[in-house]
Design a binder for these strands. Sequence first.
DNA 1: CGCATAATGTTATAATATAACATAGCATTA
DNA 2: TAATGCTATGTTATATTATAACATTATGCG
Lengths: 167, 167
Amino acid sequence: MSLSKQHQQFPTADHDHQHCVERALHEAENYCRKRGVRLTKLRHRVLELIWANHRPVGAYDLLQQLTLDGHKAAPPTVYRSLDFLLEHGLIHRINSLNAFVGCDHPGLDHSAQFFICHSCGQAAELDDTKIESAIASHAKRIGFSIERRSIEITGVCTHCEGEHSDA
Amino acid sequence: MSLSKQHQQFPTADHDHQHCVERALHEAENYCRKRGVRLTKLRHRVLELIWANHRPVGAYDLLQQLTLDGHKAAPPTVYRSLDFLLEHGLIHRINSLNAFVGCDHPGLDHSAQFFICHSCGQAAELDDTKIESAIASHAKRIGFSIERRSIEITGVCTHCEGEHSDA
DNA sequence: CGCATAATGTTATAATATAACATAGCATTA
DNA sequence: TAATGCTATGTTATATTATAACATTATGCG
C-alpha cells in the first residue's frame, strides 16, 4: 500500500471521516490476519473508538465509551487492548497527552512525528524523511542506537490559526 | 555564554559532575537575579536534587529526597517547584518517563532534543540545528504554528552499547 | 473431548498530578 | 513600624493514569 500524502497534514472539518475509519479498520483486520494475531471484538471496538476522530483519546475516556456500550469494563480491559494495538503498530501513544491516536499507516516500520493542535485537539501524523534522517544522523554521530522515538510538536494548526476564539 | 559541545553527547562515567552541578546552579541564580524572580531555598534545593546526575528524576523521588532532608513535604511542594523551574527553562520534562532533568543551557530559547539511554538511564540534551530546521520547515509547509516540542529518542548510548549486561 | 494457551474479568492498589483553602514570608509604603 | 498586598509554601483531600495479581472464559488444536 502506498503512503497517501493526504495524511501528512491536518484533516479538514469536512473530510470523509467515515472513510478514514473504514480504511483503518480494514487495514487492521488485514494486518492481523496476515500476522496470525487476533483482532478480537474488544480490540476491534477499542480501535474503532480511537478512530472516532483525529484527536488523541485517553484510556479512561475509552473505558467510559465501552461502558456506554453496555460493556462493564475495568481499566485493565482497555489497557490490555491498548497494549495489543500499540505492540502491533495500529495506534500510537502521545506521551505529552497520556493519550492514544490511530496510526495512519500501520504495518510499516515507520518513524512518526506528531503535530498536535491544542485548539482543535487534532493530531497529524507525519513521516518526514528529513526529520528522521536528521535524527538518525545525530544518533550515528554520537554512537546512539535508536529504539523508539517520541516526537510531539504542539501548537496551532492552519485551520485554527485564523479563527476568532482560543488561538 | 557559548554553548559548549560537551553537552551535545552522553556524559562519561568519569566526567567532573561537581562542575556540572555548580555551573547549573550558578546559571540558575544568575538567570533569576536578572529576571527578578526568586530562586527560593526550596526551588534551589529541588534544582540541585535534579542535577544529582544526568538521569531524569520523578517528582516522587524528589519528594522522598526532600523528606530525607528533614523537609516534611507533600506533592504540591515539589510540583510547584517543578512548575517554576519548567516555566523558567531551568529544567525539562521528559514526557515518556514522567520525569525531569536539568537544562544544559537555560535561558536560551532553545529547541531541545533528548536522547535517552534505557541502560544507564542518562539523558543527553541536544540542540541539533538540522533536526530543528527540518521540523520548522515541515511546520511552515502545513501552516502549523509551533509552541512546544517534545522530542525524545530512546535507545542505548555508546557507553552502554559495548557492555556485558542489559544491552 | 481434553488440553494448552490466549484473552478477558475482577479486585485491589500503585504512581502521577492537581484542587482548594490555610498560613507564612517578603516587600513596599503610608 | 504597622498595614497592606502579593508570593510562596503548608496541608488535606482527591483526581487521573496505570499496573499487579489472581480468577474465569474463550479459542484453537491434537
